[in-house]
Design a protein around this nucleic acid. Structure first.
Length: 599
RNA sequence: GGGGGUGUAGCUCAAUUGGUUAGAGCGCUGCCCUGUCACGGCAGAGGUUACGGGUUCGAGCCCCGCCACUCCCGCCA
């Protein structure tokens, strides 16, 4: 007997009908003479009742032998529950199925962890959840995440199709381009000693597609990076990859705002206000100390360089004399910070090369600080006014070159926010999404160790047109046509208008990035050549799909929105990969291992 | 590669800071129970305290090593 309804379907309107449900035994309440079994499928659950007075003895005995997660088919008659026994917690709680037939499709052994109790299950060791991922995914919370992911993927495809985009698949067996992230290599059997690389992103293919005249391309592209993992980074992940021809930055902003509006409406039934605000890289750093600011709370950076220009405090005066800045934030209500917390923040500062971290605790009506004795009345008044200092506040200073000072306080700002959240002094609504575009990034950054410039984004990013002459004279001042879309302090995506003139691209490669000509030819020759045969102006963006789903699901870890994620060491606990291979496989691939064999 | 956290019953956690036989809730097993939905009642089983060393009269607790998971730094054009 096939099922006639799913387990979230029956309502009082079905009363009297004979139905068949199929699913898992979610919970069982055996009252001795009467057995209740909640049957669960992916849609929900329904209570079934086994009454011995209405059933053959052997059927009732089989029902008594069922336990959690057995798979069953149940046939019976829908009826209203007796007065006072309705369950308002579930959608099917007004009715129940009076069982007339039971088919046990499969028994289940006792589970390694419960899947029926959300509170317990959510706390289960993640190691165990990953090892038994198929059980973990049965939990309604995880099933919801998978479903939401699927809905958003579909909504994305529909939206992009409406906007005239073609979904084009690009190769995952690509070639190594050693700039950027470390790549996963795939040895070639046919070509001894040669390797494919899995793409970090389809960047080059999508630009070639523009040369190919596709004009509007997108793909839910699987990407690979052989770097260490984080809660928001997996070695393989999915991005919504987009590229368009004959456009400028504004077209990308409008497109992505439209896409995100659609996605948020689909997933959360929320109407995102657009357009998103825009913030320059400089402003983001200056106010929030980071290029992906979380604007849901204040605690902004305040500059005191002018106020301390004549200070007798040598640490400050020395920094100012060297062209640096004095910045501060007010962590409101954190005067009670523990020594350990101050220590943690000091370590952050030292991580950026600072000697230490100056602070003031405003407690019992006085400023408790090792440095306040150096401050004049005017300096104190300026601090009080510009930081709105009150009893209970914690003031933290950074004195360094502008970028470093900003980054130190940006890091500390986020840490303070975490501490305040932990103390219940800062609460961020779960339905608040502060989107913004960060723009006007510097095209190039300088690598002190290697004494050369490198691309802040990637080497195909176009400079802002009016800055092109500065490329060879003052690279630091060149702004890139690069943009990031940020929400609640998370970098959701980024992209750029690309260089489509081969000569500008060649200048960037050879003169600015100092990549030798023959190496440029070996790695990007086909691209430069393609651009000679009529490349349209183009640009694009990629959104981190996993991160977007995680934000929509309200989880901090993208592992919760990936069906089969890997651990922090890149292993899969369910399949036990990676794993050794047979000697013959290695021989076929012309590989010789140098690692000691593990037994 | 570096730093922090965690690891005790199938699961989630205790164990008065080194002291008797390592406990609880849930789960599991058996018996009882006809309106439960966190069903209830009675009884019971279940432990190499991740693993390997060491200190000590005595170690779940202290020390060294190691493994796994996790968070962060480096890394992620």
């Amino acid at each position: 007997m096939k099922r006639t309804h799913h387990c979230n379907e029956l309502r009082p309107a079905h009363v009297g009908q004979t139905v068949t449900l199929a699913g898992w035994v979610h919970s069982r309440r055996d009252l001795g003479g009467l057995i209740f079994i909640d049957i669960r499928d992916r849609e929900g659950r329904t209570q079934t009742v086994f009454d011995p007075s209405a059933l053959p003895a052997d059927l009732f005995a089989r029902a008594a032998g069922l336990r959690s997660e057995c798979v069953i088919n149940v046939t019976g008659v829908v009826r209203n529950r007796p007065g006072g026994t309705q369950n308002t917690k579930i959608a099917t709680g007004e009715v129940e199925v009076g069982v007339t037939g039971l088919e046990v499709l499969n028994m289940a052994e006792v589970l390694p962890f419960p899947v029926d109790d959300p509170e317990t299950a959510a706390k289960v060791n993640e190691e165990l959840r990953l090892q038994y991922r198929y059980l973990d995914l049965r939990r309604p919370e995880m099933a919801r995440n998978l479903r939401l992911r699927s809905k958003v993927a579909t909504a994305t495809r529909v939206f992009m199709d409406e906007q005239g985009f073609l979904e084009v698949e690009t190769p995952t067996l690509f070639k190594s381009t050693p700039e950027g992230a470390r790549e996963c290599l795939v040895p070639s059997r046919v070509h001894p000693g040669q390797f494919y690389a899995l793409p970090q992103s389809p960047q080059q293919f999508k630009q070639i597609l523009m040369v190919a005249g596709v004009e509007r391309y997108f793909q839910l592209a699987r990407c690979y990076r052989d770097e260490d993992l984080r809660a928001d980074r997996q070695p393989e992940f999915t991005q919504v990859d987009i590229e368009m021809s004959f456009i400028d930055r504004e077209d990308i902003y409008a497109l992505i705002e439209g896409l995100l509006k659609r996605v948020w409406k689909t997933a959360l039934n929320m109407d995102l206000p657009t357009p998103f605000i825009r913030m320059s890289f400089h402003e983001a750093l200056n106010r929030f100390g980071i290029d992906k600011p979380d604007t849901r709370f204040g605690m902004e950076l305040v500059d005191f360089t002018e106020e301390f220009r004549a200070t007798t405090f040598k640490v400050f005066s020395g920094v100012i004399a060297a062209g640096g800045v004095i910045k501060a934030i007010n962590a409101k209500g954190l005067a009670g910070a523990t020594q350990g917390q101050i220590e943690t923040m000091t370590e952050y500062a030292k991580g950026f090369g600072a000697k230490g971290l100056a602070y003031i605790k405003v407690e019992s009506g006085e400023w408790k600080s090792p440095i306040v004795k150096f401050f004049t009345a005017e300096e104190k008044a300026a601090l009080t006014a510009k930081l709105a200092i009150q009893e209970g506040d914690l003031i933290l200073f950074a004195a360094d070159q502008w970028l470093t000072a900003c980054e130190i306080l940006g890091k500390i700002r986020l840490y303070c926010a975490e501490v305040l959240k932990g103390q219940g002094k800062l609460t961020l609504p779960v339905d608040q999404f502060n989107f913004l575009w960060v723009v006007d990034f510097p095209l190039l950054s300088f690598d002190k160790e290697q004494n050369r410039w490198y691309s802040s984004h990637h080497p195909f990013t176009a400079p802002v047109a009016e800055d092109v002459p500065l490329l060879t004279t003052d690279p630091k001042k060149v702004r890139g046509q690069h943009y990031d879309v940020v929400v609640n302090g998370v970098e959701l995506g980024g992209g750029s208008i690309r260089i489509h003139q081969p000569d500008v691209q060649r200048t960037i490669f050879e003169q600015v990035l100092q990549i030798p000509g023959d190496m440029v030819k070996a790695r990007f020759g086909y691209m430069l050549e393609a651009f000679r045969y009529g490349a349209p102006p183009h640009g694009g963006i990629a959104l981190g799909f996993d991160r977007m789903i995680a934000i929509l699901c309200g989880t901090p870890s993208i592992r919760d929105v990936i069906a089969f994620p890997k651990t922090a060491k890149g292993t899969d606990l369910m399949t036990d990969s990676p794993a050794p291979v047979e000697p013959k496989q290695l021989r076929d691939l012309h590989l010789d291992l140098k690692v000691a064999k593990k037994d």
